[in-house]
Computed example of a mutant assay.
Amino acid sequence: MNTLKRRPVGTAPRYRQIAQILRAAIGNGTYKVGDLLPGEIELCALYDISRHTARDALRLLTDEGLVVRRRRAGTMVTAPPGPATFVQPLGGFEDLLQYAGEARLRIIYYGPAPADGLAQTLDLLPDDWRELRGYRGKGAQTVGLTRMLIRKDCAPTGSDIDGASSVAGAIEARFGVVASRVDQRISALTLSSLLAQLLGAPEGSAALHTQRQYRDATGRLYLATETVHPADRFAYVTSYTRERPDIDR
């Protein structure tokens, strides 16, 4: 008898919902190392999804190192999910925004933007912005320390976003401002004494520094974020598909 949850819930893309169900089943021991997961056809029947969606869900688990796929053998579990690592695929605009939709925010400060804070770093007028500082986490695990600037004319209340999934989503829901473009910069750094203490990680250890700027349809900046993730708690996974060349060309 198949013990998998039959109805995915939430607003995440369908393939990510299926991947999360399978990931949870691996984590709780329903599927142990060496066991085979349901194949694409079985997943299609179980969840009423396309084969493409089933394949993407299994690909995500493969990218995370939880399973290995072998032709004619199936998809075999190779490792349980680690409790501390958040994996974000980057396949397009929706995937880019998905991290904010799954890593919950816990606010430690939300108020006027200090003159010597992120506004100064981005060369913005502090009076036009509110600054937010907090933690990003999944369950009880902290995966990153984040800092944001939110334009005052579209700044949600603290109760709207504390514990919420997406600040950009809260802005869209309350003010109708939609991200038409997101610029992202990813770099490496080593944790200072203060960052290490805040994140509970070794001083001088490797970390990932992610900066994003969200712009509306007019190109106007309305949200800027920067997040620091200890290296062992976060990973980006990018998949590229090569289009078939036009043989008639």
Results as ranks from 00 to 15, higher is better:
219 G>L: 05
12 A>N: 08
3 T>C: 00
175 F>K: 12
240 Y>I: 13
181 R>C: 07
31 Y>Q: 05
69 R>F: 00
71 R>K: 05
144 G>S: 00
231 A>E: 12
90 L>A: 11
114 P>E: 11
34 G>K: 09
156 P>S: 13
58 L>P: 08
201 A>W: 01
9 V>I: 09
211 Q>R: 13
161 I>L: 13
95 D>R: 04
213 Q>V: 13
175 F>A: 05
134 G>P: 01
201 A>H: 01
157 T>R: 10
74 G>T: 01
207 A>G: 04
170 A>G: 05
85 T>H: 06
68 V>H: 04
45 A>M: 09
152 K>H: 06
115 A>R: 06
147 R>A: 00
121 T>R: 15
160 D>S: 13
67 V>P: 14
213 Q>P: 01
61 L>W: 11
217 A>N: 08
63 D>T: 03
95 D>P: 09
23 R>Y: 08
199 L>M: 10
161 I>A: 06
124 L>A: 03
41 I>D: 15
36 L>S: 03
161 I>R: 14
67 V>G: 10
105 L>H: 09
203 E>S: 07
182 V>Y: 03
23 R>T: 05
29 G>M: 08
185 R>H: 15
136 R>C: 03
147 R>V: 00
119 A>H: 02
132 L>T: 03
157 T>L: 05
67 V>S: 15
132 L>K: 05
91 G>N: 12
157 T>Y: 04
101 G>C: 07
75 T>C: 15
105 L>G: 13
122 L>P: 00
158 G>P: 02
53 T>F: 01
18 I>W: 04
232 D>R: 08
220 R>V: 14
179 A>K: 04
228 V>K: 02
138 K>A: 07
112 P>K: 12
231 A>I: 04
92 G>Y: 06
197 Q>G: 06
27 G>I: 01
51 R>Q: 10
13 P>L: 09
157 T>E: 11
241 T>A: 07
216 D>V: 15
65 G>Y: 05
13 P>G: 04
39 G>F: 09
213 Q>E: 14
2 N>F: 02
202 P>F: 01
10 G>Y: 07
202 P>G: 08
223 L>Y: 07
20 Q>H: 12
5 K>R: 05
202 P>N: 07
235 A>M: 03
23 R>H: 09
113 A>N: 02
148 M>I: 00
34 G>L: 04
168 A>C: 07
31 Y>M: 05
175 F>S: 07
115 A>F: 01
230 P>G: 12
6 R>Y: 03
249 R>A: 14
86 F>W: 09
230 P>M: 03
200 G>S: 14
37 L>D: 12
153 D>K: 09
56 D>A: 15
69 R>V: 06
238 T>W: 08
24 A>V: 13
202 P>W: 00
108 I>G: 02
115 A>G: 10
77 V>E: 13
123 D>T: 03
215 R>A: 15
56 D>F: 04
137 G>M: 02
247 I>L: 15
90 L>V: 15
131 E>R: 06
40 E>S: 15
78 T>V: 11
80 P>I: 10
144 G>L: 00
214 Y>I: 04
177 V>Q: 07
107 I>A: 06
104 R>H: 10
58 L>C: 10
179 A>V: 12
219 G>I: 11
37 L>S: 05
203 E>V: 09
87 V>Y: 15
139 G>T: 04
221 L>W: 03
30 T>H: 14
194 L>A: 10
225 T>S: 05
243 E>L: 08
247 I>S: 15
26 I>K: 06
40 E>A: 02
92 G>I: 08
3 T>Y: 01
